[in-house]
Amino acid sequence: MSPPLMALQWAVNPGSGVPLPPRWGWYVILYFFVGGLAAGCYAIAAALDLAGEPRDRDTVRTGYLLALPGLLICTLLLIIDLGRPERFWHMLIKSKHVPALLLKYWSPISLGSWILAVFGLFAFVAFVGAVVDAGRLRWRAAERAVAGVRRLPSGVRVAWLALGILAGCALGGYTGVLLVGTTRPVWYNAIPLGGLFLASAASTSYALLLLLLLRRGRAAADPALVKLSDADGWALLIELALVVLLLLMLGAVARPIVSGVYGALFWIGVVIVGLVLPLLLHVRHSERSAFAGLRGRAVLVLIGGLVLRFVVVMAPQWPRVPPWHL
């Protein structure tokens, strides 16, 4: 059925001839958001670890410290969201053929479970390294391990970080694909959604890093922050372009997202607050007020990122699923 017809029918008689809403609510929305942050922070940190300068050390350490907790929160959210949380491991191991592993690469959720597991490994290593470096973990074994790893040939380190960045991209980039891998008209037809969520992961991660570094007392003009801010600007631009592309590709099917209350949230929260305003402010580069400052811009971007996931996940499930559904 053509997307417009399906969408129309769904609007007229929800649940008839189209899939039932999966009741993915706030657990999943927050998972997408936090997951994007964990992935993005790690990838940015790893990139700077690979090719950055000594003054980026703070950024790297901050990023590495965020990745693991973020991942753990994600995992927890996903597990709680399950109808049978105690069976979360069924997505990794065949429950009837323990310990055979299970991967269905054509199923985004199956793929995603492994991405989380693999990324978790990188995040863990990075986290341990970061706390040891920060002197927070006074455990001889850990310190010796980190030192040992440091002594590995640089090729190994490069490969590891490169793979880690890939893992981060996978985590940030598969969440949108998870929604595409359904048959709900708004999601199914949203091919740019994977990229959009990845771009949003990047822009929100840059924003979070900026916020945390500013809190630590760094000045806005600090080069380490400026390069983050620049990259953020590019990410926002890419994100905006992808939003436009998405709307063009969806056409009439986009109705649930662009109209009504969710539509208002989308245009105001995502487009204006989350994308256009920060971009404008970035270009104008003003320091005059706190609002216009780096901090303010970062907050706007974070808000926009959360609202984006909220609207994309919840709007197509309305009216059968209310907006506060966990």
């Binding site: 001839g17 039932l20 999966p22 399950l82 109808g83 069924h90 891998g181 359904t182 709900r184």
Partner: peptide, 23 residues
């Protein structure tokens, strides 16, 4: 085996599969 992830709900184009109160 099912752990209630509800991907199947969103995947069925006919709106058949649903999640029960047992998760």
């Amino acid at each position: 085996v099912c752990n209630g992830c509800r991907a199947c709900l969103a995947a069925c184009p006919f709106g058949v599969v649903d999640i029960g109160s047992d998760g």
